[in-house]
Design a protein around this nucleic acid. Sequence first.
DNA 1: CTGAAAGCGCTTACAG
DNA 2: CTGAAAGCGCTTACAG
Lengths: 336, 336
Amino acid sequence: MGVNIKDIAKAAGVSTATVSRVISGKPGVGEETKKKIKQIIEEMGYRPNLGARGLAKRRTGNIGIVSPRQSNIVLGNPFFISILEGVSHVLDQHDYNMVLSFTLSQQKRLLETHSVDGILLFAARIGDPVLEWLDASKLPTVVIGSYQDENAYPSVRPDDEGGIYQAVKYLIAKGHTRICFVNGPLSSIKSIRCRNGYLKAMEEEKLEVTSEQIIEVPEYDVLVSLKTMNRLFKEGKFQSTAVVCASDYLALGVMKAAISNGIAIPNDLSLIGFGDVPFAELSHPSITTMHTDLKKIGSQAAQMLINEIKGKKIRKRNRVFPMELVERQSVCALKQ
Amino acid sequence: MGVNIKDIAKAAGVSTATVSRVISGKPGVGEETKKKIKQIIEEMGYRPNLGARGLAKRRTGNIGIVSPRQSNIVLGNPFFISILEGVSHVLDQHDYNMVLSFTLSQQKRLLETHSVDGILLFAARIGDPVLEWLDASKLPTVVIGSYQDENAYPSVRPDDEGGIYQAVKYLIAKGHTRICFVNGPLSSIKSIRCRNGYLKAMEEEKLEVTSEQIIEVPEYDVLVSLKTMNRLFKEGKFQSTAVVCASDYLALGVMKAAISNGIAIPNDLSLIGFGDVPFAELSHPSITTMHTDLKKIGSQAAQMLINEIKGKKIRKRNRVFPMELVERQSVCALKQ
DNA sequence: CTGAAAGCGCTTACAG
DNA sequence: CTGAAAGCGCTTACAG
């Protein structure tokens, strides 16, 4: 099992307490002794056992990332990846490890076995079993993305409502009036917020919203979106000249379905995505979309969690990041 | 800190040893006692402390996933995501947590602090500093993907060489002779293997390979591929009628560059990708590509690692998964 | 400035 | 079938 603190103490002719002090940079050790111990640590290749340290200090040094969604949907989503990058950067500076959980049983274990010091909760939906375990665990938690109850945990999220609102307004400014909205499932609070943004913009402009104009796709996934839209286009009842989507992936599905049904984008149909993932720029045509600083959302959330763990007061519990429109090729002004 | 094993022991009027036996399902506890203890555990909501258990059993219950590449490149890559899904599934069954490391310092900590019981190494390149730490850590390790030394660690990987070989042969069967190859950097062993497959197929058919026909892109990334190809197309010296790529992402970059330079795919240029990530099917045109069972690669690697940790003999240390061609829309027969 | 000792929460020979 | 005790590798009052 390698060399431990006792070995070092013995070799240096001091107590383990002194060695421990040197390792953790605590004051109160003579320069001479410190130097000697450091040298011996180097020579013997000593590496602290984080588990043991954790036991003694009653912390684990791990942060759990939990998302109730299927791993492929979350991890395969550049949206989350970018956020994770930000998270990773901050945890790094504070010497935390990231423990990911993709399955229900992993999440349960994570939350019930004192394996982590705090939780970053992603993409939760109403009714997710994880929420109950989380609650019972009493673990410091920060939510990333929209959540049912802003008061339950501190949170960081993009301004979903404002983002969609802006997108709709932009299309209206381009002359569109028959604008439909492709949304994710309403079990996601994000979807509800996005929906509100859409309705608000339409109402403000006194544009009628028929039930066909809100298309709810059961999952934030390209393929699901593709299938749903394919059916719609084939039925021939699709009347809109523009569509706003609650995610870039949804938009990509719409685009693919449109193309294979002979609907040209943007000439026959204008399209706006949401999130600005790398693919939005790479598709053909490139997708006009709503952008926000995902990495920063991640790093702020991580920072808040660390403060929470340290028992520091959090100034602003719920942070909302503004979104801005990125103009690309998928929108054009409506021709009369 | 919640209720611990002592509390349970006291409440049940037994020793902690007995409680421990019940928890870990060890034999040698009376039915009555066992029942009683189980009930009390339930009532008091006891959850074992994995850290403490780990200290006592000299294991951590964690598996580290390390990839020397930048997080966005690895994690943003559906190729790895699919593999991770397979990994996740197996680790789950064996009650292991997954600890991810995205940055150098995280990896160093992971490898030097007894934080994990084993390592799954992804996408290593020659000269990566991680390799040295890994080596020094003496941790059980399984490599996923091509690696410099097949004997160093057990490994699981797709048949890179055979895959590219098949792709080239397929194009030749379609009448192409001027076939170029877009590869990743040669610091990656995967790239070297892919290159060999290309050369082998071309040589077998006695087709000349000029130096311009092998295009080495410095990173397995869409944008980098896009830029490189854009430059090439603009120079106007591009002579091939078909291109094989060492990854779907590379292929996507080629496609995007071709389209924006007025080169139609597949009519002007046939294109084959590698890996069959979800986007290969969703692009327009959809990409003909080499497919393999990525999830299975992940689950096999995880299983091998667990066997390694348990000290079981591994029957076959280096496993190679065959690849097969998936015909889509990005290739057409050469018109004379 | 330094050490002896207790403790973190669990497991596991050993003894009975 | 069960318990007392030692131990996993560290930290931290406490005392000097």
